[in-house]
Protein backbone atom coordinates (compact mmCIF):
# COMPACT_ATOMS: atom_id res chain seq x y z
CA UNK A 1 0.00 0.00 0.00
CA UNK A 2 1.10 3.51 -0.72
CA UNK A 3 0.62 6.03 2.09
CA UNK A 4 -0.41 9.52 1.09
CA UNK A 5 2.21 12.12 1.87
CA UNK A 6 0.66 15.46 2.77
CA UNK A 7 2.65 18.67 2.83
CA UNK A 8 2.37 21.83 4.85
CA UNK A 9 1.49 24.79 2.65
CA UNK A 10 4.94 26.36 2.75
CA UNK A 11 6.43 23.24 1.12
CA UNK A 12 3.84 22.91 -1.62
CA UNK A 13 5.50 25.29 -4.06
CA UNK A 14 8.41 22.87 -4.19
CA UNK A 15 6.12 20.06 -5.38
CA UNK A 16 4.32 22.04 -8.06
CA UNK A 17 1.56 23.05 -5.67
CA UNK A 18 0.39 19.57 -4.75
CA UNK A 19 -1.27 19.20 -1.33
CA UNK A 20 -0.40 15.55 -1.21
CA UNK A 21 1.60 13.03 -3.14
CA UNK A 22 1.47 9.27 -3.53
CA UNK A 23 4.84 7.71 -3.12
CA UNK A 24 6.10 4.38 -1.89
CA UNK A 25 8.89 4.47 0.67
CA UNK A 26 9.79 2.27 3.59
CA UNK A 27 11.76 4.84 5.55
CA UNK A 28 11.86 8.60 5.92
CA UNK A 29 15.23 8.62 4.18
CA UNK A 30 13.90 6.74 1.19
CA UNK A 31 10.91 9.06 1.01
CA UNK A 32 13.17 12.12 1.02
CA UNK A 33 15.39 10.61 -1.68
CA UNK A 34 12.42 9.86 -3.90
CA UNK A 35 10.90 13.28 -3.30
CA UNK A 36 14.14 15.03 -4.20
CA UNK A 37 14.41 12.91 -7.33
CA UNK A 38 10.86 13.62 -8.45
CA UNK A 39 10.86 17.28 -7.35
CA UNK A 40 14.39 18.73 -7.55
CA UNK A 41 13.33 21.85 -5.66
CA UNK A 42 12.56 19.69 -2.61
CA UNK A 43 16.26 18.92 -2.16
CA UNK A 44 16.99 22.35 -0.70
CA UNK A 45 13.96 22.16 1.53
CA UNK A 46 15.05 18.79 2.83
CA UNK A 47 18.50 20.19 3.52
CA UNK A 48 17.00 23.16 5.35
CA UNK A 49 15.11 20.72 7.54
CA UNK A 50 11.75 19.05 7.38
CA UNK A 51 9.97 17.28 10.19
CA UNK A 52 7.83 14.27 9.37
CA UNK A 53 4.70 13.35 11.26
CA UNK A 54 3.75 9.70 10.86
CA UNK A 55 0.28 9.11 12.27
CA UNK A 56 0.69 12.17 14.45
CA UNK A 57 4.15 11.34 15.85
CA UNK A 58 6.71 13.94 14.87
CA UNK A 59 10.15 12.84 13.68
CA UNK A 60 12.75 15.53 13.12
CA UNK A 61 15.95 13.67 12.65
CA UNK A 62 15.95 9.92 12.29
CA UNK A 63 15.83 9.16 8.59
CA UNK A 64 15.94 5.45 9.30
CA UNK A 65 12.50 5.65 10.85
CA UNK A 66 10.22 3.13 9.17
CA UNK A 67 7.06 4.31 7.51
CA UNK A 68 4.60 1.54 8.38
CA UNK A 69 2.80 0.13 5.36
CA UNK A 70 -0.49 0.79 7.12
CA UNK A 71 0.36 4.37 8.08
CA UNK A 72 -2.80 6.42 7.76
CA UNK A 73 -0.94 9.66 7.28
CA UNK A 74 2.53 10.95 6.56
CA UNK A 75 2.76 14.71 6.95
CA UNK A 76 5.71 16.90 6.07
CA UNK A 77 6.07 20.07 8.13
CA UNK A 78 8.72 22.65 8.90
CA UNK A 79 11.51 21.60 11.22
CA UNK A 80 11.00 23.60 14.37
CA UNK A 81 13.01 24.95 17.22
CA UNK A 82 12.46 24.96 20.96
CA UNK A 83 13.63 26.86 24.01
Amino acid sequence: MMPRISLTSSLRDAVDGAESIELHAETIGEMFAKLAERYPRMADRIDAGIAVAIDGQIYRDDWNTKIPADAAEVFLMPRIQGG
Binding site: S6, T8, A53, D55, G56, I58, F75, M77
Partner: peptide
Protein backbone atom coordinates in the same frame (compact mmCIF):
# COMPACT_ATOMS: atom_id res chain seq x y z
CA UNK B 1 -6.27 16.76 12.45
CA UNK B 2 -4.02 19.27 14.18
CA UNK B 3 -4.28 22.80 12.88
CA UNK B 4 -0.59 22.59 11.96
CA UNK B 5 -1.17 19.56 9.77
CA UNK B 6 -0.84 16.03 11.05
CA UNK B 7 -3.38 13.84 12.82
CA UNK B 8 -2.94 13.43 16.58
CA UNK B 9 -2.26 10.15 18.29
Amino acid sequence: QASYGPVYG
